[in-house]
């Protein structure tokens, strides 16, 4: 910037005074402005509730008979021969559509194994000669602690995947030198009588960084 043209002595001094005075006022005003906005420059964020710990649980949602035995749980519900007669295979009854009639005592069982109502006979898997065990179609007896062996006779590819650790939940160690992989049994996830995994409530979705107006989730299918 070019230096200002020389002025008479008195006016020069006056101009300096005005400029400095103006600057001082400006600075003081700025300082006031900064100080006044300083306290409120962070707006409080909308509270986000902590996620329910049920969504963090790693325990399987079903317990198998073997788990109950291991946990020394009350097994009185599983005492088959408390009601059934030994050495006398139970008879199955069917309605007019050839659908099996689930007896009153087993009303909690929903028959839904197989997409077209196939595999609707109890003794396809249960052992009619000994209700405390299961049976494969070739007649081999299989214990309740060895379910994958039974399921695998029909679901071969899934059984193969499960053995390789590729089907089903796993936990534990990928590095087998440090520890074991924990694989679950089929019935830890699938209800054997209705194996399709039921729908469930999803965990909460992401919250926007800023508090935005309630916006409709955009239609994914458009």
């Amino acid at each position: 910037m070019d230096p200002l043209p020389p002025l008479p002595d008195g006016r020069n001094r006056a101009r300096t005074g005005y400029v400095l005075g103006g600057l001082a006022v400006l600075f003081v005003a700025l300082a006031m402005l900064f100080l006044s906005t300083m306290r409120e420059h962070v707006k409080p964020r909308k509270a986000i509730p902590l996620v329910d710990t049920k969504f963090l649980a790693t325990t399987p949602w079903r317990q198998t008979y073997a788990d109950l035995v291991k946990a020394k749980a009350d097994l009185s519900d599983y005492d088959c021969y408390g009601c059934h007669e030994k050495n006398k295979p139970p008879t199955l009854r069917f309605d007019e559509n050839q659908k099996i009639i689930v007896p009153q005592e087993h009303v909690n069982i929903v028959m839904g194994h197989g997409s077209h109502g196939r595999n609707n006979l109890c003794f396809n898997c249960h052992n009619d000669k000994n209700l405390t065990t299961l049976q494969v179609r070739d007649g081999r007896e299989i214990g309740f602690d060895n379910i994958p062996q039974l399921c695998g006779t029909c679901h071969g590819p899934n059984y193969r995947d499960w053995e390789a650790g590729a089907h089903g939940r796993t936990s534990g160690y990928w590095d087998r030198s440090k520890g074991d992989i924990v694989r679950l049994s089929c019935a830890n996830c699938h209800n054997p009588h209705s194996p399709r995994i039921p729908t469930r409530e999803p965990a909460p979705g992401p919250h926007a960084l800023r508090a935005v107006e309630e916006s409709k989730p955009h239609d994914a299918a458009h």
Binding site: T58, G172, Y173, W174, C189
Partner: peptide, 17 residues
């Protein structure tokens, strides 16, 4: 440390490997 990631262990359907 030889263990699986947390997202894998929590997956209820074993989709993560």
């Amino acid at each position: 440390d030889g263990r699986y990631p947390a997202c894998l262990e929590v997956c209820p359907v074993g989709a993560r490997k």
